[in-house]
């Protein structure tokens, strides 16, 4: 558990002159300064817009509309945030950001968990069972990798309309739930599980379900965690499908609502609330990444075998 912490640790001071043993072979001291300069530049480029959004979210609409925008946070933090979270935003029919966050959380969780369940089960079937047309099914799944959601969006939409699933969580989640990528990922992982382990479990009296529950799931923990992070963010940032399948304002996801809040006319847009919503939209994915990063990193780098 030491490695992930090291990643999060604050950048350490440059090693003292005597600390050459800490340097990588062939690395000069000047090289370290250059590397750090580049890293810091990168961080500034990425972080500044987010900081600026935060600053804007703490000023009144008038301040925002009268450039230049100050570089330091204003005094309207509490007012702006409580207005957005609990009051409702005018341009999206008075729906509060709390509702939007709730919707998006349901959708992102639904997509992430649903995708994991479906893909781990299909990978389990494909790797550990011999049944007719096994390879055909595998290739069918594999081929769908090459089809983006956009290609099948019209037929899918038609199906959703016929089933009356417009403006429902089911309609938002289910069409996005099948995942060839995750299935392949689990398949590759399952293939690395030694055959002897499977046989040992059989000798120990574990049937297919027990083997899955007692051996496969615990071994897949880190993979599941890594996938969860990726898929949660994938679900959270979905744009096209939620845009099509929701009409009611109170069923919008936060990304769609954000788009709706912005009018062509600058004066008509409640920019301070847009900024607040942007900030709030960023928070959950960040939380997921930060809280799960330990697992995420482990899932990507090592397997417990």
């Amino acid at each position: 558990m030491a490695e992930p912490k090291a990643l999060m640790a604050e950048p350490k001071a440059l090693p003292p002159a005597s600390g050459h043993d800490k340097l990588m072979i062939g690395q000069s001291k000047a090289g370290i300064y250059v590397a750090h300069a580049i890293l810091i530049l990168g961080i500034v480029i990425v972080a500044f817009p987010i900081y600026y959004t935060f600053v804007a979210s703490t000023h009144s609409l008038q301040t925002i509309l009268r450039p230049p925008l100050p570089l330091l946070p204003g005094d309207r933090f509490v007012e702006n945030y409580s207005e957005a979270l609990f009051g409702g935003v005018g341009r999206i029919g008075g729906v509060s950001v709390t509702t939007l966050l709730f919707n998006t959380t349901i959708v992102a969780l639904g997509i992430a968990i649903g995708k994991i369940i479906i893909s781990i089960l299909s990978a389990y079937a494909i790797v550990f069972f011999r049944f007719p047309l096994r390879m055909v099914f595998f290739w069918l799944i594999f081929i769908t990798l090459m089809l983006p959601v956009e290609v099948r969006i019209l037929p899918t939409y038609k199906v959703m309309v016929d089933l009356g699933l417009i403006d429902t969580y089911t309609g938002l989640i289910v069409p996005l739930i099948a995942s060839a990528t995750a299935t392949l990922l689990f398949r590759q992982f399952f293939l690395t599980i030694p055959g002897e382990l499977v046989e040992a479990a059989r000798v120990d009296g574990a049937g297919p379900w027990r083997f899955f529950k007692d051996i496969l799931l615990p071994l897949s923990r880190t993979n599941i965690a890594a996938l969860f992070v990726i898929l949660f963010i994938y679900g959270w940032t979905q744009y096209l499908w939620p845009l099509l399948v929701t009409n009611r304002n109170d069923m919008n996801t936060i990304v769609i609502a954000l788009k709706k809040m912005i009018s062509f006319a600058d004066a008509d847009t409640e920019w301070h609330l847009v900024m607040v919503t942007s900030m709030l939209a960023i928070v959950p994915p960040i939380l997921v990444v930060v809280l799960m990063q330990r697992w995420f990193v482990r899932g990507l780098v090592d397997t417990e075998k």
């Binding site: 002897e196 382990l197 040992a200 075998k305």
Partner: peptide
């Protein structure tokens, strides 16, 4: 009949211990 019902126990070359247990 399957390995479970045969009432046998096996020691494998690579031990095949359950790594998470």
């Amino acid at each position: 009949i399957g390995p479970t019902e045969r009432d046998i126990a096996m020691v494998f070359q690579n031990y095949a211990l359950y790594p998470h247990m």
